[in-house]
Design a protein around this nucleic acid. Sequence first.
DNA 1: TTATTATCAAAAATTATTCTAAATTTGTAA
DNA 2: TTACAAATTTAGAATAATTTTTGATAATAA
Lengths: 143, 143
Amino acid sequence: MIEHMKKYTVQELAAMLEPSGLRPSPQRLAVLSYLSHSTTHPTVDEIYRALQPDNPSLSRATVYNTLNSLVANGIVRELDIDTSNRRYDFAASAPHAHFFCRNCGRVIDVDMKNIELPRSADFVVEQLNVNFKGLCAECAKAE
Amino acid sequence: MIEHMKKYTVQELAAMLEPSGLRPSPQRLAVLSYLSHSTTHPTVDEIYRALQPDNPSLSRATVYNTLNSLVANGIVRELDIDTSNRRYDFAASAPHAHFFCRNCGRVIDVDMKNIELPRSADFVVEQLNVNFKGLCAECAKAE
DNA sequence: TTATTATCAAAAATTATTCTAAATTTGTAA
DNA sequence: TTACAAATTTAGAATAATTTTTGATAATAA
């Protein structure tokens, strides 16, 4: 997320799928398009419910399958901040961390310019996640 | 994990429960003891299967309940590195990050002396997780 | 065209987790 | 001790998330 609120054309979205050999099916484009302009790190169910009205034939299994292949191809990132629901993030975004509110479950982006992928002989790091947990401003006020 | 491979006595383990008012039941002590000398960030199922032979009456629900109350009282930490299984960590350990191998699923500790909880007016940070994902040395060799 | 492959949807299956209600254990106090 | 209440544990049922299977359809290749 963070500063990539650009609207992508269908052609641009299709071009993201191309290198992986994934066909630009309407379902894939819909999921990708939704993620590309979402700011809420949606769960599978949120994505499904958002797209279903305009894609009446869409199946939940398709959303799962689509997200799995998008993740496998590095087009989309799976957050590991919320253990009870998978949440997704558009991969073409600046490196950032996430804050998870233990009260309302909201996930907030945190800019972290200085974070770098560590190099290590012990393993090949492909992804770095930095997660904060606690209370967001609203919930902290309410407590 | 990391450098706390000390063996705890039953009395020491019981003392950890005391401040929270949790009774030192055999089940709780067994879970806590297991976590205290485990290096693998076990899942619920791994904990259950490890303890079951010596605790034939042990129920999976008890392991879940026990872990939930240990986490709620800050005695044990829940990792959020593996979205398909909850993994646990003994809380009395130095701050560290985790590396998750996408091939074998292994979770490896990474020492990170310099990481600090960020302060922010926007939210109250209670926990910080830094997670790396990729391939561990063995799996990288095999690929 | 025919063959092959990719994609999708629906339902069934699987898995992780929580819930429920009964049984057991514990702490305290008569 | 015994009695009782509260805490804990248990087994299994229920639920929810996710994956797998299957058959149909659509796209591509030969």
